[in-house]
Design a protein around this nucleic acid. Structure first.
Lengths: 109, 109
DNA sequence: CACAATACCTAAATCACTTAGGTATCGCAA
DNA sequence: TTGCGATACCTAAGTGATTTAGGTATTGTG
């Protein structure tokens, strides 16, 4: 069912954050998310690729075909200036939100 | 657009948490969420009432009509034993998730 | 030579949420 | 006295991100 794995909406900010380190291809972004969250978030490819296309369509990402270290073809994404602004705003939104929810849940029952 | 206000999926755990303090009616749950999150989360009634029905249908809540302090009719919800277990599990899920996402976003760009 | 991993993709289904209404009662201020 | 905001409930239509479940092709490895 929708949202059983991810809290819907958090994928975008994670993609943007991944790309803040430099251009990266889709498959590697998925790996980055899984690794930096220590397997807490396992992003399905069926969510990842449409998300990349969506963020690209919004002008937050630019893409370009290239070669990986191992010589395979891959589509590299990088943040546009608008995407970088969006990253900052979404990180702020996450922080505010997470703090608020955590505070509500933290209080003893 | 869907999810512009809430991160989809977080409403359920907030409702469950609100009811961990004792029976409460829907309108008051909405107020509790807004207040304890200091207006960060403004839950729309169009999301709140369907969510209450959903959680009730899942057997996590019981409901009963009653009177408010001011003498108005209201439908009071309370946690079932299953709902209480669900609360614990969803709080744990939120904490794990929030910690993982925050760590991924915290690292300097 | 088969199989896992890499690397990309899409279509259908699900379902929580937003938007936008609706009903009715109550208290209060103009 | 009337009109408006707050309380308290509700629903239907639309949106759109995600899950599920496939698909292609290449590369490296046991």
């Amino acid at each position: 069912m929708a949202g059983s794995d991810l809290y819907v909406g958090t994928l975008d900010v994670l993609i943007l954050k991944a790309l803040s380190w430099g251009p990266m291809h889709g498959y590697a972004i998925g790996r980055w998310i899984r690794q930096t969250t220590e397997d807490v978030l396992a992003v399905q490819e069926g969510a990842l690729y449409p998300a990349l296309h969506r963020l690209h369509a919004r002008g937050w990402l630019a893409d370009e075909w290239g070669l990986t270290d191992t010589g395979r073809e891959a589509k590299y994404y990088r943040l546009t200036p608008v995407g970088r602004r969006q990253l900052r705003s979404e990180v702020a939104r996450w922080r505010t939100y997470a703090r608020a929810v955590s505070a509500a849940l933290e209080s003893p029952a």
